[in-house]
Amino acid sequence: MNSPFREPEYVDYKDTELLKRYLNEQGKILPRRITNVSAKFQRQLTRAVKRARHMAMIPFVADSLK
């Protein structure tokens, strides 16, 4: 985050640190209105989040995502 953020060409579902930046405390995906990323990146993000959820790396619903 010290260098300007460049959108990666592939969003890896295993990279939960990256994904968590785009989730709210409940574990919901933040809208593009808030994230301000490109449509392409948001789509990839959404995919990766859903994959990560399936593999129990991030929760479907979280009361507190620490």
């Binding site: 959820r53 129990a56 790396m57 991030i58 929760p59 479907f60 979280a62």
Partner: peptide, 9 residues
């Protein structure tokens, strides 16, 4: 390796 699951399976 072993990791904690985000929700029980």
């Amino acid at each position: 390796g072993a990791r904690r699951l985000s929700y029980p399976i």
